[in-house]
């Protein structure tokens, strides 16, 4: 791990010696340490099975949902140990967007945006509700497209629109950071471009951590990049530097397409 960023000033999130194993002989993430910089897009790259999604899901403790997953190390959000927080509060502070668009099929577009409030049993005044819906949908540039069909089911939208709706749903709580797990892998190129544009705009207000298997996507939109291989964090640095002059041989091989 030569020359990779050892220290980031004032990180939103700090990962310290994190290891995750699905069972004892099968570690998925091994001893990863990194800080995530505020209001930047950080990409996690690597071949499939390298542990990048596992790392991402450790941050909002999604692994807690399943038994027998062994987690060691610390993750600090704004200096606070995440294991000391309730998963409820943690997940409200960290939004998540998934590989496949997954709006709630039984809820309208409007209800999908404020689903976080609904699920957390928070009752809003109608005016507050409408304000949050409009603001969140404007944030993801979806407002003009759906403002006349807010009562329709979210599943009627196109794949790209659905994914932006899911991002709006994650934003509605005004989280500290957003985790995206290969958010464009199920989208066509046009929809992918829209989501990428959106992410570069969103970093003004949010810290974004993006898992991608697509290195050109990382090059296009991220400020910082991590390269993971076989569960280890091989290299972490400014995206520009890493793509121009990777330090580790494995990073170079990956970036030049020797393996994927």
């Amino acid at each position: 791990m030569s020359d990779l960023i050892k220290h980031i000033d004032d990180p939103v999130l700090e990962i310290r010696n994190l290891s995750v194993a699905y069972n004892k002989d099968k570690p998925a993430v091994t001893d990863v340490s990194a800080g995530i910089k505020k209001n930047k897009v950080t990409a996690i790259m690597g071949p499939s099975g390298c542990g990048k999604s596992t790392l991402l899901r450790a941050i909002n403790r999604m692994h807690d949902l399943y038994p027998n997953i062994d987690i060691n190390g610390d993750i600090l959000l704004n200096g606070e140990e995440t294991t000391n927080m309730s998963t409820i509060m943690l997940r409200r502070k960290i939004g998540m967007v998934f590989q496949r668009p997954n709006p709630f099929p039984t809820m309208s577009i409007h209800d999908n945006v404020i689903a976080g409030y609904k699920l957390n049993g928070i009752r809003l005044k109608k005016s507050d509700r409408n304000e949050i819906v409009e603001k969140s949908l404007r944030d993801v540039a979806l407002w003009d497209e759906v403002k006349d069909s807010l009562t329709k089911k979210g599943t009627f939208l196109s794949g790209g629109q659905q994914q932006r709706l899911c991002i709006a749903r994650a934003l509605a709580f005004r989280p500290d950071m957003i985790l995206l797990d290969e958010p464009t892998s199920a989208l066509d190129p046009v929809a992918t471009k829209k989501v990428e544009e959106l992410l570069t705009q969103l970093k003004e207000h949010y810290t974004i951590l993006l898992v991608t298997h697509n290195m050109s996507q990382a090059a296009r939109i991220s400020d910082y990049s991590m390269f993971m291989y076989l569960g280890e964090l091989i290299e972490y640095g400014k995206t520009k530097d890493m793509f121009i002059k990777p330090i580790d041989k494995r990073t170079e091989e990956y970036l030049t397409g020797k393996f994927s």
Partner: peptide
């Protein structure tokens, strides 16, 4: 996918 989406928004199991 749907259940995880709800958990990622901070819902408890009962709420999911």
């Amino acid at each position: 996918d749907l259940k995880e989406a709800a958990y990622s928004l901070g819902a408890t199991r009962r709420e999911v």
